[in-house]
Amino acid sequence: MFELLSVKINGATSRVARGTTVAAAMLLADRPSRISVTGEPRGALCGMGVCFECRAVVNGIPHRRTCQILCEQDMTIEASR
């Protein structure tokens, strides 16, 4: 029915439907997008690229707003710290 893609979130493989945003994939995997400056886990808030709470390291590039990026096969995603 849906085409599934494999992505790695903090090293663990997740299978998500094509079209899933990276922010949604991190929510699905129950992983925070980033750890705040005082150590709190945070995830997407605004969903539209404004709040930067969903920023994470995507394919090695830091500070990516994950709500604005779609998952791609074999993408590596890591929480920002």
Binding site: A23, A24, A25, A44, C46, G47, C67
Partner: peptide
């Protein structure tokens, strides 16, 4: 700031993005 708290439009956008 807890994960699980979203904007209203924010949650809708994330649902459209596959959550």
């Amino acid at each position: 700031t807890l994960p699980g708290v979203f904007g209203a439009g924010g949650l809708q956008a994330l649902v459209k993005g596959g959550f």
